[in-house]
Nucleic acid binder design. Sequence first.
DNA 1: TTTGGGCCTTGATTTTCATCAAATGGCGAA
DNA 2: TTCGCCATTTGATGAAAATCAAGGCCCAAA
Lengths: 244, 244
Amino acid sequence: MNFDIRMAHLFSSLDDNQVRQVMESSHISTFQDGESLFETGDEANRFFLVIGGQVKLFRVSSNGDQKIIDIIQPGNTFAEALMFMEHPIYPVCAEALGPAKIISFDCKRFLQILSQSFSVCFRIMGTMSQRLRGLIKEIDDLTLQSATTRMCAMLLRRMEEIGKSHFTLPAAKGVLAARLSMKPETFSRILQNLSSKNILNTKGNEIQVIDTELLRSLAHLESVLGLEPEVHCTLSGAKSLHSD
Amino acid sequence: MNFDIRMAHLFSSLDDNQVRQVMESSHISTFQDGESLFETGDEANRFFLVIGGQVKLFRVSSNGDQKIIDIIQPGNTFAEALMFMEHPIYPVCAEALGPAKIISFDCKRFLQILSQSFSVCFRIMGTMSQRLRGLIKEIDDLTLQSATTRMCAMLLRRMEEIGKSHFTLPAAKGVLAARLSMKPETFSRILQNLSSKNILNTKGNEIQVIDTELLRSLAHLESVLGLEPEVHCTLSGAKSLHSD
DNA sequence: TTTGGGCCTTGATTTTCATCAAATGGCGAA
DNA sequence: TTCGCCATTTGATGAAAATCAAGGCCCAAA
């Protein structure tokens, strides 16, 4: 059960003594699939570190749709930014995606430690700064890009993460669809479409990328645009299935 | 020319001596309408405080469209979060919206000051935390909401900011459209539509809100839903113009 | 083995918004 | 004043993705 929290970026510059202090106010818990950690609007007096499984952060619209903001992987913290607000309120819901093991920390306690160490402060600011950047990227993905583009970018990211052209999708298709802000039907159709263009093969949750270059050019239209004039931009709707 | 930078939240807890240090590395500049402060990808070694006019932060898509991430008002800082990254690169473009007066600060220098004062650190973290929150809100606006919803939310925000039901739009319509991630044509049509429903009157950039409740219910569908069964959700396309 | 229930796929249709193209209107400069 | 330029409006059309509605698939429990 001894997990060194210094594996997480956020804690990486704590000394042994500080780690001990932080751990004093921590709880380890396990969550079932779908179990809630907190909801939008709850008072935020703890933050979290995922040490096993996954946690999805999402918001719910009035009609019940979920928009998944992020899927937190083991070794990562979340909700730590709220610590610095006057009236900390979680802006999202969090729930376990599959069984998950999570450590939670008391915000006040952690702030005390922060006020002893500039290097930890700076590290936190670095983390927050990266998140900001990520969200900005996300916003322009959402507005500037089509569903197909988002799909391709996600596949590429995953592919480069794994390092092989054959890989497994990191979550159920429905979940990924929500992450990419599209309906499961659309997700399915786009995958189907990419497959019919011989850009990739798919079997269940397994993906085999065939034409990486084309995938890349679809992911960020700016770069290779024009390499494949037949296909470049207009690959998208189900209607173009028979177009070549 | 003596502007107390402590008016900005970020600097508010600096003492006189620290202010002096910060100012040593600062430059005041004026910018013409449309003049660029920096571009996406530029090395980020300065951050900024707007003391007059407005600055728009935006990203550009491959086809030349602009997505406006934020419009910075006087008294506010921006790009300060980049300071904490290893290879600081501006993730957005910034340009003056109308003539603007801006102070820029050297990041390195400010970091030195930071490492003297926890309260300034905490304040920055607070600022960043708020921005994070804002961006998350933005993401769900973009994904969960329709163009009409975004428009209504913007109008309401503006109305409550001014405190009167009669107000002027805070920028040119085209700019606002980009801010709300829609085309000027769409912006125009939605406004026209709201007007035809007697929710508001519009003349140039002047808006007179008539039915605040209805506007509110359109802005966040969850609340008053059902108050006006005829209209509640389906007010949107230009086609429904003649629907009642 | 059969059954049932998620999840995913597929097809048909509709909605929303972008795009294209053409007025309209205001406003400053000549 | 008139001209020309720009932002905005308006109309017609198209494309992307949501929605609605079945159907298929896989797996786990009976």
